[in-house]
Computed example of a mutant assay.
Amino acid sequence: MTSDVTTGSGQEAADFARRTSTGLLQRVEDRLRSLLSAERETWAEVDERAVIPVDALSEMIASGGKRIRPAFAIAGYLAAGGDPEDPGIVAAGAALEMLHLALLIHDDVLDDSSQRRGLPTVHVKHMDVHRSNDWQGEDRRFGEGVAILVGALALAYSDELMSEAPASALPEWHKLRSEVMIGQYADVHAAAEFSVDPRLSRLIAKIKSGRYTIHRPLVVGAKAAGRGDLAPAFAEYGEAVGEAFQLRDDLLDAFGDSADTGKPAGLDFTQHKMTLLLGWAMQRDEHIHTLITEPGHTPDEVRRRLLDTGVPADVEKHIDGLVERGCKAIADAPVDQVWRDELAEMARRVAYRNA
């Protein structure tokens, strides 16, 4: 059975498309949970300690998340006419989410973040375990070591899951994985250097976040359905919407409420992340560099100074332009109108989210 949504009224087709996508996302969720449940059962027979890394991943899955990457892979697959009954797209979606878990866990170590989705991060939780048990060695070193290993386990599981996806999707998967790692390195390097370079900031936003979140998952889905010809249109859409996604992330970090985002506010400031928001602001006000790099200044001072530059408002306008560009890119794509509409709506959802 293929994803034929051209029959019936436009609303009926849209409803069918949405139900199909939702059903596949639920199957992704079930696949993730069943994999981790089976792994827990296997390792519980070995030693009670061996289940701890698996449990850490299960807890992250249970804590929520928007499942943006599987959602875009599924949209790309269905837009390309893929068969919703094929378990391969479910495996691909689960692989993308498992990779995302790995990157979040490692990101939290790199950023020294204490909270993720409203809960203690993996390294912080295990620092506390070490401390409360009065174990040998340094609690920080133990906690970060556990997080590195749990993240590596998620990477292993993501490859295992992707091995069940259509082989046609694998080249894009390999490109996605290496690209996001290089982007992560560039982000760390730029934070240490902390020089004003909006060109580099924009590049990092694209390869570390935008492509990995929107562009590549869409193409993974399309190629899994045998429609590699959709890659150019999805790339143009994904580059624009992916950049809008990252810029929203930058604004949420600077001005968002941690109760909504589930993580500490102002991490980009404390970790000296050279976001496009900060790069543009420091071009207008050199004092912002001092506020961020020298001790004694509060995040609220930085926020006030950023607002005074007018850059946050300019970033909002830039996001508007990116969403418009993404919608135009998909408007002429050789897919059913229902999927053009759905992808346009998805662009708006990720660009204007509040968490």
Rank of each mutant, 00 (worst) to 15 (best):
G76I: 08
A91D: 09
L78P: 01
P87A: 08
A79S: 15
L78K: 03
V28D: 07
G81A: 11
G76L: 00
E45W: 03
G81L: 08
A13P: 05
P87I: 10
E85K: 08
A92R: 00
A80F: 12
E48P: 06
R27Q: 15
D15A: 14
D47R: 12
R49Y: 14
I61A: 02
L78N: 04
D83I: 06
S21T: 15
I68D: 03
R67S: 02
R33G: 03
V54M: 01
R18A: 13
E41P: 01
T42A: 13
G64S: 08
I89Y: 00
A56P: 05
A75H: 00
P70N: 08
E45G: 04
A92P: 07
R40F: 12
I68N: 03
S21V: 12
R40L: 07
V46E: 14
D86V: 08
Q26V: 10
G81E: 07
P53T: 04
G81T: 12
S21L: 15
Q11R: 14
A44R: 15
E41T: 15
P84H: 10
V46N: 07
R69L: 01
I68K: 00
R40P: 03
Q11H: 09
L35S: 11
R31T: 12
E48N: 06
A44S: 15
E41N: 14
G64V: 10
S9I: 07
D83E: 05
A75N: 03
D47Y: 11
G23Y: 09
D15E: 13
A91C: 09
D47M: 01
F72W: 03
P87E: 11
T7L: 13
A50F: 15
G82L: 10
D15L: 13
E39M: 14
A79T: 11
G8W: 15
E59W: 13
K66Y: 06
S63C: 13
V54T: 13
A38H: 13
G64N: 12
A14T: 10
